[in-house]
Amino acid sequence: MNRTPRTAATTRPEAGTPVREELRVPVRGGELAVSRWPAEDPAAPVALALHGITANGLSWARVAHHLAGRMTLVAPDLRGRGGSGRLPGPYGIAGHADDTAAVADALGLESVVLAGHSMGAFVAALTAVRHPRLPTALLLVDGGVGFPVPADLDPDELLDAVIGPAVRRLSMTFPDRDAYRAFWQKHPAFGGSWTPWVDAYIQRDLVGEEPRLRSSCDREAVRVDGVDQLREEVSGAVHRLPRPAVLLWAERGLMDEPQGLYDEHRLAAANLDPQRVRPQRVSGTNHYTILVGDEGARTVARNLLRAADARGTSGPGAVPSG
């Protein structure tokens, strides 16, 4: 397989925001779309960042803004989403982990700070286990730590209960881009957090032609990946990490409800090794705004820089959210 990446586009945004390069990286079955926000110094550290189950790489754009050229940020559209929406299966978290390693190899990245949000955090943890020489540190953002689920609950039922609204939109069509924007602006998790970064991330999801635009996310990829997160190989990867990690967790949930994915009780039940994973609550955020909101993205960027600075040390460390 030819592992040479090619540059598909370069976006030069408004003054004060970083340039984004779009690359095409050869992987199994085709090419993965990859966004890269290069640092001002070519020798600067690199973060390889992975998105959530129905998201795309532009969900990390606000973080790139707050990195302000101090670190290169690389964020692929995972197989079955965004610009990688037509890549074939088989899907699954292990496949995403190997795609992530292929991106690092193609871009000549021998070591990175490995980061992931939501499902991407599970991918990051499994990537670290399967490719232990790649990460120097890990940053898990509201994901990556599994917790017990009722034994009698069908996995597909659980997936619908947790991310049902996100999955249901995959069968919807929209007459134009304004209609899709309006759909998302009504989402309770975004509230007053709608910005050009959010808009670009949301619009990247659309494919097709008016008046039948639809999400780029492959429904089978979403289903397989969602159920796959429940397997012990995936949910238990956080207990087998070869490098220290910080877990940033949002205090509110996917629909901005008071109960988030994590809280002190759930994290205690997860029995994390404090020498390997250090949880840090990010106040005032929900599952989405911890990454795309201004304060959430600022906190994520601070912790990426801290992780890069702490390479080779024994403790994971964390930068407070305030």
Rank of each mutant, 00 (worst) to 15 (best):
V207H: 02
V149M: 15
P316G: 12
L213H: 01
A44C: 05
D309N: 06
Y91F: 12
R28P: 14
L138A: 11
M255W: 00
V207T: 09
L170A: 06
Q280N: 05
R181D: 14
A101T: 01
D256K: 05
D294I: 07
G226Q: 06
A49V: 12
H117W: 13
S314D: 13
G322Y: 08
L140T: 02
G146S: 09
G57T: 04
T313Y: 12
G85L: 00
R62L: 09
T313D: 15
P242G: 05
E110R: 10
A128G: 11
L87P: 07
D228C: 00
A39K: 04
D142Q: 04
T285Y: 01
V162R: 08
V63H: 13
G192Y: 04
L126P: 02
A200S: 05
L153H: 08
M172S: 15
V46S: 02
E21H: 15
Q259C: 07
E22H: 15
R169M: 13
Q280W: 03
E210W: 06
Y180V: 11
W249C: 08
R86A: 14
A318R: 08
N286M: 04
W37E: 01
A64G: 01
D152T: 15
P38Y: 08
V319G: 10
L159I: 02
F190I: 13
L58A: 14
W194F: 11
N303G: 03
G322T: 11
A97C: 11
P316F: 06
Q259Y: 07
L153A: 13
T72V: 04
L241P: 04
G208N: 06
E209Q: 12
L213P: 02
H131S: 06
P132W: 03
E157V: 13
A101D: 03
P88C: 02
A94M: 09
R3S: 14
D99W: 10
R302H: 15
